[in-house]
Structures are given as structure tokens and as C-alpha cells.
Amino acid sequence: MPRLSWFFLRGGFICLAVGMLAGGLILVQKGTGRFPFFWVLLPAHIYLVLVGGVTQCALGVSYWILPRLGPGKGRGNTALAWSSYWALKTAILLVALHPVVKIALGAPAAGATFVCGGVLQGLAAAGFALHAWPRIRPSQTVGADSTFSLSFSRRHVRASQYVCEPSADGPKAGE
């Protein structure tokens, strides 16, 4: 698994867990009628689980398993993918901090976190789309692409016994 997928996926699972905690607190409010201020967490809950969790996991897996561009080109424009990662991370952080900003600095400042988060999220999506676009193409046949390692399937299957079918230019051995 490449480092960027690793970052996306670990971040994604953390966001899911934190987002679920926020949702859990709101559900406690619904059940008990106490702590009405927990509702301030609703935008953060939705953003953390959907953008932070589901989207980051999807981007992490795509970066990992989409076909490479061929000999010497690897995964293509990786700088773009990394920029997209940092933009999305900042957007998530801003929206996650929104409840704190709202309590500490008031609604206008909290609104600003949404504006900045929204802009960064758009930029992140565009960056990742530009990176991934050329990688969405038919897989190479075995032997036509030097990035393919024939030993991959045998070694990997023996190691784990449950791996999915590798494509010719998909993830390599030990990734």
C-alpha cells in the first residue's frame, strides 16, 4: 500500500470513529432529552463520517489500486494527489473544529470555517480527479507492463490466502 493511501485510510478510519462519537452524543441527547447543546455537533458528525470517513477511504483505495501509467511513470502526478490530500485534511479539520469555534468565537467565525472548508474541499476533489483521470484506463495484459510482478499473485496469496485477484498493473507484491 503506498504511503498516501496509508495516510488517507488511517485518516479515514479515525474520522469515522470520531464522527460516530459525535453522532452517538446526539443520539444520547435524543434518548435522554438532556444536553441540548450536543446538536452543535451535527454538521461535524455528517462531515466527518461522509467526507472524512467514506470519501477518504475511497480515495485511499483508488490511489492504491487504480492501474499505473506504465513503465517509469508509476502512479502519475503524485504531487497533485498529495496536494489534494492536504487540502481535504485541512477542510476536515476546519469543519470538525466548527463547534469549538462557534462556542468560542460565535456564529460568524464558525461560518468562516465552513467557507474555507468548502473551498478547500472543492480544490481537493478537483486535484484528485486530475490525478486519477489518466489512471482510469483498461488494465495492461500480463507481460505488457513492466510494473507487473508475476510473482505477486503466488507470494501474496500464500501470505494472506484471502487477497483479491490482482490486475496486471494494480498493487504490487507486499503493498
Partner: peptide
């Protein structure tokens, strides 16, 4: 309502355990 609290605790625990 306390059953909803149990539901919240179980789901949140599930997310963290899977993490």
C-alpha cells in the same frame, strides 16, 4: 430513551473497536 443511549454506546464502541 435509555435504549437509544445503549444503541449509541454500542455503535460508537463498534467504530472504535474496528479502528
Amino acid at each position: 430513551g435509555w435504549l437509544l443511549v445503549c444503541s449509541a454506546v454500542l455503535q460508537v464502541a463498534a467504530g472504535w473497536m474496528f479502528l
